[in-house]
């Protein structure tokens, strides 16, 4: 494992910790999209089915389990916690997730490495992760004002994807015959989804003011 990949994973983990801390400390999930969090749970469940039949490393297994547990913990807070669930912007978080799930599934059936249940589900998870942040970005656009922690959460998620891109470039030049087109193309799309957000995040940071999205 190279330094870019490790930095990417740690940024991903940190983004989840930031979100969980925000929810626990402020007892509020205002500005957080439950739809996006549920899509991430679907992504992790369909991708990490290999926990049952393949072992890569202890690091790999532990991280997968952490991502699964934290995803369901966040969903639990937003749906079931008696204080937190009342702060959820249900009326604003109206993205139709089937418009993401169905096309990703069809694409996974059409473009994959092998027509098996686990391989199609794994491919589906790759496609779905690329667009899973969209309900969150739409919610942000609607509520306009972005609180610091939610902003940092999304910024870290975007950074994690950017670090994965660098990791793939590094692996391409250091590992003979290494290529994974499905992952590369989806990952590039996924990183591009964040570009607009990055622009406003960096602008707010440079002007030392609270982040605001244009109408």
């Amino acid at each position: 494992m190279n330094i870019f990949r490790l930095a990417g994973d740690m940024t991903h983990l940190l983004s989840i910790i930031v979100l969980l801390l925000k929810i626990q400390a402020t007892k509020s999930c205002a500005g957080v999209s439950l739809k996006t969090q549920e899509l991430y749970a679907v992504v992790f469940v369909t991708r990490y089915l290999d926990l049952f039949y393949s072992f890569i490393s202890l690091y790999n297994t532990v991280m997968k389990i952490i991502f699964l547990l934290t995803a369901f913990t966040i969903i639990w807070y937003m749906r079931k916690h008696k204080v937190v669930c009342q702060t959820y912007d249900k009326e604003q978080d109206t993205f139709r997730v089937l418009f993401l799930i169905v096309p990703c599934f069809v694409l996974a059936l059409l473009v994959n490495h092998e027509m098996s249940v686990t391989e199609v589900l794994w491919t589906f998870s790759i496609y779905l992760e690329a667009v899973a942040i969209l309900p969150q970005l739409v919610l942000l656009q609607r509520t306009k004002n972005v609180d610091n922690l939610t902003g940092n959460y999304i910024f870290m998620l975007g950074s994690y994807r950017a670090l994965y891109l660098v990791n793939w470039v590094y692996r391409y030049f250091t590992e003979l015959g290494y290529r994974q087109w499905i992952v590369w193309v989806s990952g590039t799309v996924q990183t591009c989804v964040y570009l607009d957000f990055f622009y406003y995040y960096v602008q707010a940071w440079r002007n030392n003011e609270r982040m605001k999205l244009p109408g």
């Binding site: 997968k64 490495h113 015959g177 290494y178 087109w181 499905i182």
Partner: peptide, 10 residues
Amino acid sequence: AQDDAPKDEL
């Protein structure tokens, strides 16, 4: 091109 990279990423 055939991808045969191991699924070792998260």
